[in-house]
Design a protein around this nucleic acid. Structure first.
Ligand SMILES: [Zn+2]
Ligand SMILES: [Zn+2]
Ligand SMILES: [Zn+2]
Ligand SMILES: [Zn+2]
Lengths: 137, 137
DNA sequence: GTAAACCTGTGAGTTAGACACAGGTCAATC
DNA sequence: GATTGACCTGTGTCTAACTCACAGGTTTAC
């Protein structure tokens, strides 16, 4: 199975498969004849796993660590539990940040609704942005 | 005013100021004597504006466009209104994505709480991740 | 046989800075 | 005046997770 077919089967772009291959997450056999990469059922399964882990926000480096454990025959579960704790904290942080940002942006747009356009002058580059920042209440 | 002093005054890292300078958002005068960059009050004001815009999620490229308008004496306000609409959609998308991800992760961690560690076998690399993906209900 | 359509691997580009580092500058000594 | 050490500078390189560009190889249709 070549890169495009595998990509289509699992619903990702060929470039994504190429990327995972390039960094060593996938190790297809290389055809001597034309240099094309051939993905065995085992590699297909590995990609499936990568995508499952990705959907839980595991990073590529996390997945490398998980594979490393599994390839040595050890249980990757402790690693997985430890890693997802980090990712959970990150996600919570990102969630809170995005929540705050969204509120700020909504407030700004509402404030700007009744304001006219103005040309820049003196220190004021855009009065919308300048004034919104200076009066945050 | 040199890079470190300016950075400290506005609460960002010197590298951030250097970055904005490198990409042309700031244009300090260059001392002929020692090559150090000198930031005038006008440049200081520009950095203040950059940081205000950044806090509303305007990208560096957005800010370039805003500066371009303002430098030509035109009102950047229409540009600003158009750009923030895009950023608002992006932020909303990111918010929803993060919300969903957070729920998925919480569910996963709860499911994994009562499960033992297992060694990899056959097609299963990590049963926690594999089984969670396959039984999403 | 040839032309077009399709596919491949590799190299480079993307964001918004962070980090490393060789060297320049400045104040306080001696 | 020379020297030491602390501090500061610009420039080059690196990051995550891909996406895009591109020269060339392969397959199919006629
Ligand atoms: Zn496991
Ligand atoms: Zn924790
Ligand atoms: Zn404006
Ligand atoms: Zn809209």
């Amino acid at each position: 199975m070549h890169v495009r077919q595998l990509a289509k089967m699992l619903g990702v772009s060929p470039d994504t498969v190429r990327y995972y291959t390039r960094i060593g997450l996938l190790e297809p056999q290389k055809s001597i004849e034309n240099g094309y990469k051939f993905y065995s059922p085992n590699e297909q399964n590995r990609l499936r796993f990568i995508l499952s882990a990705r959907d839980l926000s595991f990073s590529v480096d996390d997945i490398k660590q998980i594979f490393h454990k599994a390839d040595e025959g050890e249980s990757p579960c402790p690693t997985v539990r430890r890693l997802i704790d980090n990712r959970l904290h990150e996600t919570e942080q990102r969630f809170q940040d995005t929540l705050r940002l969204r509120a700020r942006m909504h407030t700004a747009v509402e404030n700007w609704g009744g304001k006219p356009d103005k040309k820049p002058s003196g220190n004021v580059i855009c009065h919308l942005i300048d004034e919104f920042t200076k009066t945050p209440e």
